[in-house]
């Protein structure tokens, strides 16, 4: 009886009573324990003076576990990276779980462990959480929402509005791997390739860049919609054009193969561990140098520049030397066959 109860999450685990407590103790508290984790209704935290960044993000991914990560790691990286993009050093996170009735306890354990590992690596503490259990079919496995705050150091001012003509565009690694990994993990197309998600916490990379130079105009986390969508957002927000050199864009060979088979554009596949960085041209070498020493950013490359012409548009210099427009982002990515 006791054994059975432990195997899967039941509606009772979300009831707020003894079983909820059990779940919190046996899984969440086990992994997330730290001096700031609250046992009360809210965490009470001390902050230094200055500006803070705050962000929230909900995570739904099917399958919940995939090569290179899982929804837990993703939920920490997502919010940590959003904070880091504002130049902030992430400090505290909260997390809210919505779990489908019947979700294997063992899997939940793995996901929580993965969250704890990732949080530790990112130097961020989980200080409050919430658990709800929904009836079978009402959610797909587990949904996680994380909210985080971080402190922004003096003199750092990054924003999507700050790209200026002449700036360089850097990506911190090859593009499209997470999206490709999920596509393959869903096994809809019977395609097999050695691709793992790029999912990674990037607060360390941002800190390293800012220590090389605080003069960075834009940092963006290229998640859903990929690098292409982020470039269009920046072009729009800053009222500038973006020109990228097709040949210098890092794309993993296997990702290229999968995209070729399905007629997809790697620039529009999601990343979960890639930043788009826009900075003055004379800072490019310093930035590349620190990035290339980073654990997750060794393949960083300059892929293009900010231009005055074609404001709001992203153009590509093609392999035959002419210029073309990157198709603007739109809708659901559908494999193109015919």
């Amino acid at each position: 009886m006791q054994e059975n109860k432990r195997k899967a999450v039941t509606l009772a685990h979300g009831g707020g009573g003894r079983q909820t407590n059990e779940l919190i103790h046996e899984i969440f508290k086990k992994y997330f324990d730290n001096p700031d984790l609250t046992a009360d209704d809210a965490a009470v935290l001390s902050m230094d003076e200055g500006r803070i960044a705050m962000s929230t993000d909900g995570f739904i991914v099917s399958p919940a576990e995939f090569p290179g990560g899982d929804i837990g790691k993703l939920s920490i990286c997502g919010t940590v990276n959003d904070l880091a993009c504002m130049g902030a050093r992430p400090m505290y996170l909260t997390c809210a779980f919505v779990i489908e009735e019947g979700f294997p306890m063992e899997k939940l354990d793995r996901i929580a462990a993965s969250m704890a590992r990732t949080a530790e690596e990112a130097g961020v503490r989980i200080v409050a959480g919430d658990t709800k259990v929904a009836g079978r079919g009402q959610v797909d496995g587990v949904f996680i929402t994380t909210t985080g705050i971080g402190r922004i150091p003096e003199g750092v001012e990054t924003s999507g509005t700050k790209a200026r003509p002449g700036d360089v565009v850097i990506v911190t690694g090859d593009v499209g791997r997470h999206g490709c990994t999920i596509l393959l993990a869903r096994e809809d197309f019977g395609i097999d390739a050695d691709v793992t998600s790029d999912c990674a916490p990037l607060s360390g990379a941002v800190e390293a860049m800012l220590s090389a130079t605080p003069d960075i105009h834009v940092i963006r986390d290229a998640t859903r919609g990929g690098v292409g969508t982020v470039l269009y957002e920046i072009a729009e927000q800053s009222g500038v054009g973006v020109n990228i050199d097709a040949a210098s864009l890092p794309v993993d060979q296997s990702v290229r193969g999968v995209c070729g088979l399905l007629g997809l554009e790697p620039l529009y596949l999601a990343c979960e561990g890639r930043l788009v960085v826009i900075a003055p041209k004379d800072r490019a070498d310093d930035l590349l140098q620190v990035l290339r020493q980073g654990k997750y950013t060794a393949d960083a490359a300059v892929i293009g520049e900010i231009t005055e012409d074609m404001p709001g548009r992203v153009t590509m210099t093609t392999e035959i030397g002419s210029k073309t427009l990157l198709p603007p982002p739109g809708g659901e990515l559908l494999p193109r066959i015919c």
Binding site: G190, I191, A193, S254, G257, V258, L261, R336, C338
Partner: peptide, 28 residues
């Protein structure tokens, strides 16, 4: 009309082939 991708034949059996297109493998 017809997206085509070059791929290398890895193995063959009963009219089916596993091909490798730049690292993407698929039975066709």
């Amino acid at each position: 009309m017809c997206v085509g991708l070059p791929a290398r034949v890895m193995n063959l059996k009963n009219g089916r082939a596993v091909v490798d297109a730049s690292g993407a493998r698929k039975e066709i």
